[in-house]
């Protein structure tokens, strides 16, 4: 589970991270399990909640764009404001304003350790 590992990593373990990438066994398992349980759209997340990104359901260009802004699988997202239209989120220490349509393409789940 790629996302779990990036959550747990310790500062001194960084160099060893690459070993994990040498043999990713079942990269999509997390997503599959979550679909039956608690995966939902980022657009449905309420203000103040913290969630974890599982997958982006978008065209290649947009998916790349979002990934480069830090929205990669496993990252934690805090929803700061929702005003019926776009969302204001905190991700990797930055604040992003996301259109509603875009938030509907982002699948999220409860963070695995419950508190981030």
């Amino acid at each position: 589970m790629r996302s779990t590992l990036s959550q747990m990593q310790q500062p001194l373990l960084i160099e060893s991270m690459s070993y994990h990438f040498m043999a990713p066994t079942q990269p999509t398992t997390t997503t599959k399990v979550d679909i039956h349980h608690r995966t939902r759209l980022l657009s449905s997340v309420r203000r103040g909640e913290t969630v974890q990104l599982t997958h982006i359901e978008a065209g290649r260009r947009l998916a790349r764009r979002l990934a480069e802004l830090g929205l990669t699988p496993g990252v934690t997202i805090q929803v700061l404001h929702v005003n019926g239209g776009p969302l204001l989120i905190a991700v990797r220490g930055a604040r992003l304003a996301l259109g509603k349509g875009m938030a509907e393409k982002i699948l999220v789940t409860q963070p695995e350790d419950g508190n981030v």
Binding site: Q9, A63, A67, T72
Partner: peptide
């Protein structure tokens, strides 16, 4: 998608 993997690996390294 390879783009996502590449972005993720860069961010994972940067996060560390």
């Amino acid at each position: 998608d390879l783009d996502t993997i590449i972005a993720e690996e860069r961010y994972t390294w940067l996060n560390g």
